[in-house]
């Protein structure tokens, strides 16, 4: 049980995919023009990540090592396409924003990396705990980036006006350079926090 909890919390901070492993950058930079997009993209990725990790963990003794990558890709691509179809059918408003990027979940490094480095080596329960942690870690990270960009670029948060209607909008934050700037500054803040923690623990 302790192991499961540890696996779960791993993705939230210590090995956070976005801010620590710096993987899955394509959706991180491309869709985060609003906080809501971050949540939707994060949940879609979490869904795919959980099911593909579970399946790959279950089949880990059945998949021959030499063809494991094609097998992972087929599993991942299938789940992504299922998400794509259901999102288009049932959440059309969200699909209009994220539609272009949903198929790209297939090549999101987070999913391949967790399948290859973790799910294929451990029991299904641990794989799910890890996938859930990684998924939530990814979700909060890109939601945070989306929130910063939305707040500065549109003056809103989750679509609600939080700044005055007349506040000047920083258009660059909604454009691709804004994604890189936000990502870099948040990464720097993360590093400062972590470095401080390390220093504190070393003192004791």
């Amino acid at each position: 049980m302790y192991q499961l909890v540890k696996d779960f919390f791993n993705g939230l901070w210590n090995e956070n995919p976005t801010f620590r492993m710096i993987i899955g950058m394509c959706p991180t930079l491309a869709v985060t023009t609003a906080a809501m997009n971050g949540i939707a993209m994060g949940l879609a990725t979490t869904f795919v990540l959980m099911f593909s990790s579970l399946l790959i963990s279950l089949l880990r003794n059945f998949i021959p090592a030499k063809v494991r990558i094609p097998c992972y890709i087929i599993v991942i691509a299938t789940f992504v396409t299922v998400v794509d179809l259901f999102m288009a059918g049932y959440f059309p408003a969200m699909y209009k924003i994220l539609g272009l990027y949903i198929p790209l979940i297939v090549v999101n490094c987070i999913i391949m990396a967790r399948a290859e480095a973790f799910a294929s080596k451990v029991t299904p329960l641990r794989a799910i705990a890890d996938a859930l942690g990684m998924g939530i870690g990814f979700t909060w990270a890109i939601t945070l980036i989306g929130a910063v960009r939305e707040l500065m670029g549109s003056g809103t948060l989750f679509g609600y006006h939080v700044l005055s209607e007349n506040a000047t909008h920083w258009v660059i934050m909604l454009l691709p350079p804004g994604a890189f700037l936000t990502m870099g500054i948040l990464l720097g803040i993360m590093n400062v926090i972590t470095r401080k923690n390390v220093r504190d623990t070393q003192c004791h």
């Binding site: 998949i63 021959p64 087929i74 599993v75 299922v82 179809l85 288009a88």
Partner: peptide, 24 residues
């Protein structure tokens, strides 16, 4: 193994398409 994966994947996709397409 690859064949099994492909066939199963095809089946899942076909099934989801049947459900989702009318909605789309």
């Amino acid at each position: 193994v690859l064949l099994i994966f492909s066939v199963l994947s095809g089946a899942v996709l076909g099934f989801s398409y049947e459900i989702a397409n009318p909605k789309i």
